[in-house]
Design a binder for these strands. Structure first.
Lengths: 343, 343
DNA sequence: GTGAAAGCGCTAACAT
DNA sequence: ATGTTAGCGCTTTCAC
């Protein structure tokens, strides 16, 4: 059933039916009712392909995932973000187009997305320092919203971010309040914007207490189990080992936990671990570990907000770049003071 | 630059230009050269929206992810599969449309995908026993390929699957050959088709050696770190604990490893662990654990094969359902015989 | 308030 | 081998 057939059945022109369906004000209300009833009755579904051609809009939003950072797709953050964004898209009749491309083809992909009219806008994930995608997208005129921020970028742009600096600052303060003074930082790679901010928050908390940061307690690496394990083992082998850990991700947090336990230490008694972005969909920790988390809902919320922001940019309802900073929720599980010195 | 403009510049009709560009045989080769050169020169990019409307094809493939199984998206398997499939799609000018929907809207989503003409076909992920999606898609006439198989389904359908039964059988045989006789199975939820097949492989290996399965050594649960930890702890607390483990996923495998180490046991000396789908993108295990894996490349390969199969179904090149069974690669790291009894 | 007609940028008969 | 002519199913002026 297409528009023309529906119009014929109603004894109306396609124009009027179209207007009635799309909420144009000039349609007689009784006519509109009839049209809507018939559309429902015949299960009329407009052909998206025709709408796209006629309007020149793609009715789709792109998410480009370079394969080099493919692990991003297995990041629980990504999954929850996508779930939140997907909700908004489908509510607005938009599709989500996922492009998984070799990282040397990222620029080319964005250009093709624009010139072929595949999407009306894109979400930029995992921004890095001076991220080249921002000037690129600006240049080719493809509307975009960044999930996170790109330190070093001078151009204005729209973004939605969790307050990573504040999150790590509060987590560190929490450990400091418990009496910990040697706190190990197990961070992600510090060319990622969020990792920089997290380190800053950690340092801010230390400096507010007049504690000088110890480079031996600050690790950055991929957020894998093995990297977390290695970092924690190295720190625990120090002459004066840390009694608390601040970890950037659930996955590396599991490595840290294993490192601690493999030395016969007990988490929550001898050592406190605070994991960022804990308690996400597929990795419940069973409430065993003192927690700090951005919480699942806030990441979903970030997805929703980003998607809404992008759709409003596409509709040009927005005036200039929009920005939104979400606060992370501090969730406390068991907690413990510093471990007794064993000397 | 559109087709008409390009044709005018060349002094040809749009038809000829279209034919030249699309490789139709009736075009004069010198004409074709000229057209291709001009297209490159003016950076002509055909408007996908117009092609879609004119041909009635969506040039897109759908992947529907119900939010209830949202963890599927954070599954390394999913990421590698998507990477492989995405490669094929982009090589063929197809888009990948991802729909993340509440699980009670799954059927409705497939119907809408069909009636609105959003996609030409779909990939079905994570099939369950008697999966209702297969009759549904058959019913609405949307071409599909299943990644995995759905035991209990009577309708013929196309699929690509890893030989899970054989994989677990070989892994169990490997442990049996080392002298292990008490082998714990840490499986995924056994309403998932792949989990059923894995259990079958495990049981086949035991029965071939005349070993009766012990229900206390067979666990099924979500494939999370905590579930792996709990299952392994429970088994290790038995009067006669297992000396080997067969684990369904990297994530639960980390829980099993932690459980083992938390008891002061050493992996590779006291206990052997074999993890399926290990060594995927973001979870290197550092070669510490005896490995068994479907390997990253085979999952990517499954993605590629599924995508190719689907595109061929869409083009109706295929005659009847196609099937493809991939063998998993057995990768051996350190290995060990059974732990000495400590009584 | 409704309709006729043109057009979005291609493809695909049907000529020639 | 190339061109002419209709569409694909909508939206959108422009008339009435």
């Amino acid at each position: 059933m297409n528009l023309k057939e529906l119009a014929t059945k109603l004894g109306l022109s396609p124009t009027t039916v179209s207007r009635a369906l799309n909420g144009y004000p000039e349609v007689n209300e009784t006519t509109r009712e009839k049209v809507l009833a018939a559309a429902r009755r015949y299960n009329y579904q407009p052909n998206t392909r025709a709408i796209r051609l006629a309007t020149g809009r793609a009715l789709a939003v792109g998410h480009v995932i370079p394969v080099a950072t493919r692990h991003e797709i297995v990041n629980p953050i990504f999954a929850d973000f996508i779930a939140g964004a997907g909700e908004v898209y489908s509510r607005n009749g938009y599709d989500m187009v996922l492009s998984v491309v070799p990282d040397d083809q990222e620029e080319q992909t964005y250009r093709a997305l624009k010139t072929r009219g595949t999407v009306d806008g894109v979400i930029v994930h995992a921004p890095r320092l001076n991220d080249p995608r921002i000037p690129l997208l600006n240049d080719i005129g493809l509307p975009f919203v960044v999930h996170g921020r790109a330190t070093g970028t001078t151009l204005p742009y729209s973004w939605v971010d969790v307050n990573n600096r504040r999150a790590f600052q509060r987590a560190a303060e929490f450990l400091l309040d418990l009496g910990h003074s040697r706190i190990g930082l197990v961070n992600g790679l510090e060319f990622m914007d969020f990792a920089i901010r997290r380190r800053t928050g950690y340092l801010d908390a230390l400096s507010a207490r007049g504690i000088a940061p110890d480079p031996q307690l600050m690790f950055q690496d991929q957020m894998t189990e093995l990297a977390g394990f290695s970092a924690a083992r190295a720190m625990l082998a120090l002459a004066v080992p840390p009694t608390g850990f601040l970890v950037a991700s659930m996955i590396s947090g599991m490595g840290v936990r294993r490192a601690v336990e493999s030395l016969g230490l007990v988490v929550g008694r001898d050592v406190s671990i605070i994991i960022h972005d804990d308690e996400l969909s597929y990795l419940p920790n069973g409430g065993e570990v003192p927690l700090f988390t951005a919480t699942r809902s806030s990441v979903r919320e970030a997805g929703r907000l980003s998607a809404e922001m992008l759709l409003s940019l596409i509709a040009r309802q927005g005036s200039g770049p929009q920005e939104h900073l979400l606060e992370a929720e501090l969730i406390i599980g068991q907690s413990t003071g510093p471990a007794p010195r064993k000397d």
